[in-house]
């Protein structure tokens, strides 16, 4: 396991919340849980995890919209069907990673954008998208 070296844990050791009286402590103390920490939930490998911001509409079909925040884990090896960040023509781009008969394709999730075949040199995978985060209220 990787030590979570980068983010200080927000967790503090559970304390007895009630005063310990002579007699009975609160029975709830036995069941005290830690506060939920979203970072801990979405970031498995802090050293390899980056947050990025989406610009554009070509991944709408995958539920990824303009302005969404993406959690990208660069330690993962892409598998067929993964949403990835790929380096394409000097840009970081979001695409669906596809393998078909030993060939690799990068697909958009939008009818206007044709899939792109990846040959060794012209594109590399920068990381695999594990989560996306969107603000749902009107601004």
């Amino acid at each position: 396991m990787e030590m979570p070296a980068r983010w200080p844990s927000r967790l503090t050791p559970p304390l007895f919340l009630c005063r310990v009286e002579a007699g009975f402590p609160s029975p709830a103390d036995d069941h005290l849980d830690r506060e939920l920490d979203l970072t801990e939930h979405v970031v498995r490998r802090p050293s390899a995890t980056f947050f990025t911001r989406v610009a554009g509409a070509s991944m709408r079909g995958a539920g990824i919209h303009d302005g969404d925040l993406l959690v990208v884990d660069s330690s993962l090896t892409p598998r067929d069907g993964d949403v990835v960040i790929a380096v394409l023509h000097g840009d970081l781009t979001v695409k669906r990673y596809r393998t078909r008969r030993g060939r690799v394709w990068l697909e958009a999730a939008h009818p206007d954008y044709p899939p792109i075949e990846v040959r060794d040199e012209d594109a590399t995978v920068w990381g695999v998208v594990t989560h996306s985060l969107r603000y749902h209220r009107k601004r």
Partner: peptide
């Protein structure tokens, strides 16, 4: 910085 994250093109 939250407001300086890398942009990825979609």
């Amino acid at each position: 910085r939250w407001d300086e994250l890398a942009e990825v093109r979609a």
